[in-house]
Structures are given as structure tokens and as C-alpha cells.
């Protein structure tokens, strides 16, 4: 009996010791798939975007604004549905009149996507700007992700569940005017902007690493300056909607 205890003890000891050789499995971290509005730190439209039909062709009756989103979690091998809806208390735009909700998805294998918001032109927009606060909602594939993180650098971008789209049909300050265009065109006014569009032949002036070359902004500034001098020589000063003389 004594030997049986000894050998049994020895056998258990060996088994216990060898048990240490067992490979430990990795522990999974599980989080529901989520999605949020991506706020590129350097973007002029990271929080909101203004869409103006006034700089588009007269025949254009609708267009699409894209809201960038990114997922939390891993990519999947199938398309996934993204749901969004307006925040009623912060929205003046009317569904079917000012905008339409289009189906949105994150394609298979993708980590990012764009929510398409169809904006509709109507005569009321000639005088009134409408606001559409888009909010990410729970879908069968995604829960709403991070909310209200502003970001601190290009490698630490921000996130939100909401995004504001402003829609109108009159000349409004381009999204990058205050951050960039003002260094070439100075103070914004609708009259000045219309003049710029007329003499440069373009209505959008994208800046940043994917925008127009710096030299091209200088070129447009000179074009506007020369054109204004010609205009003033023929017509006198150009006065904007605030009663101020337009200058560049």
C-alpha cells in the first residue's frame, strides 16, 4: 500500500510537471463590430461639410455627398450594412425634399467606406440653407462606434457618430476658405466668390496634399487681381453684399 502511494504520487508529480509543457492558447478579445465617422485631422470637412448647388451646373438637380466612415474590428469577406438616420432635433432638411437616404455598406474586405447622402436641389435653397445631421445607427452588422473624439494629429485622427451636411443653392464660403483660401483671396463674400468663379473658370479650389499645386493658387490670385483692376477701370469698384469694396 505504501508503495502504491509512492508510485501514484510519483506518477501524478511527473504528469503535473509535464503539464507545464502544454502550449497556452491565445486569448481572444471580442468586441462587436462597430463603425464611426472618420475625422481626418487635416481635413477642412472633418466635422461638417457645406454643399452648394450654386457652384454647380444649373441643370444639376441632385448630387451625392459622401461621409467617410471607418470600422472597428476586422474586415469581413462579405458586404456589411451601415445604417444612418437624421437627428431630428438638429435637422431642418426634409427627407424626400432636401435629401434622400441611400443604402450604405462597407464592402467585403474593406476597413473604410463612405455613406452616400443624396442631396436634392429645390428653389427654397436659393434663399435658405438646410441642415442635415447624419447619425450612425445600429444595423445588423455594426453598432455605432466612437463618439466625439476630436483627434490631435494626422496619425491620431478623430471620430464621431454624427456628421453635419449643410445644403444650399447660393454661394457660401468654401470649406477651406478660412484655413487656406483666405491667404490668396482675403475676406469672403458672395460677390467676391462669384467674381472668382467667373474669372478663373472654376468654383472649387481643393487644397492640401491632394489639392491644387500651391503655385496654381498664386496664379489664380494674380488672375483675380488683374481682372479686378480691369473691372474697376471699366465699372468702378466692385461692392460686395456687405457694402465693402472687393479686393484681393
Amino acid at each position: 500500500m505504501k508503495k502504491a502511494i509512492q508510485y501514484t504520487t510519483l506518477l501524478f508529480t511527473c504528469a503535473f510537471a509535464l503539464g507545464a509543457c502544454e502550449k497556452s492558447e491565445l486569448v481572444d478579445y471580442n468586441q462587436p463590430d462597430m463603425i464611426y465617422v472618420f475625422k481626418d485631422f487635416d481635413s477642412d470637412v472633418k466635422d461638417s461639410a457645406s454643399y452648394s448647388f450654386a457652384i454647380k451646373d444649373e441643370s444639376l438637380q441632385y448630387d451625392t455627398v459622401f461621409v467617410p466612415v471607418r470600422i472597428m474590428g476586422t474586415a469581413k469577406d462579405f458586404d456589411r450594412e451601415v445604417k444612418w438616420a437624421p437627428v431630428d432635433s438638429l435637422t431642418t432638411a426634409v427627407a424626400g425634399t432636401d435629401y434622400e437616404i441611400l443604402p450604405a455598406k462597407v464592402p467585403a474586405g474593406a476597413f473604410s467606406a463612405n455613406i452616400p447622402v443624396k442631396v436634392l436641389r429645390n428653389t427654397a435653397m436659393k434663399t435658405n440653407e438646410v441642415r442635415l445631421m447624419v447619425e450612425i445607427r445600429q444595423s445588423k452588422d455594426f453598432a455605432p462606434g466612437i463618439s466625439d473624439a476630436n483627434g490631435s494629429s494626422w496619425y491620431m485622427p478623430g471620430a464621431s457618430r454624427r456628421y453635419l451636411v449643410k445644403i444650399n443653392d447660393f454661394l457660401t464660403k468654401p470649406n477651406n476658405w478660412d484655413s487656406f483660401l483666405k491667404f490668396f483671396f482675403d475676406t469672403f463674400s458672395q460677390v467676391k466668390y462669384a467674381f472668382i468663379i467667373k474669372v478663373t473658370g472654376r468654383s472649387e479650389f481643393p487644397s492640401g496634399s491632394t489639392g491644387l499645386p500651391y503655385a496654381q493658387f498664386v496664379y489664380y490670385e494674380t488672375v483675380c487681381r488683374n481682372a479686378l483692376a480691369e473691372y474697376e477701370a471699366a465699372n468702378g469698384p466692385l461692392i460686395d453684399e456687405f457694402g465693402n469694396r472687393v479686393t484681393f
Binding site: S209, G211, P213, Y214, A215, Q216, V218, Y219, Y220, T222, V223, R225, N226, A229
Partner: peptide, 18 residues
């Protein structure tokens, strides 16, 4: 004709100094 070599390129010339 001046051109600043600030990025992004290309560094095309625009109009002459006024």
C-alpha cells in the same frame, strides 16, 4: 514671373508680378 517652391508641385509659372 515668380514661383514659390512650396509643395505640392508642379511649380508652374503663373502671371508676371503686378
Amino acid at each position: 514671373f515668380p514661383v514659390s517652391l512650396m509643395t505640392p508641385p508642379p511649380f508652374f509659372y503663373g502671371l508676371p508680378l503686378i
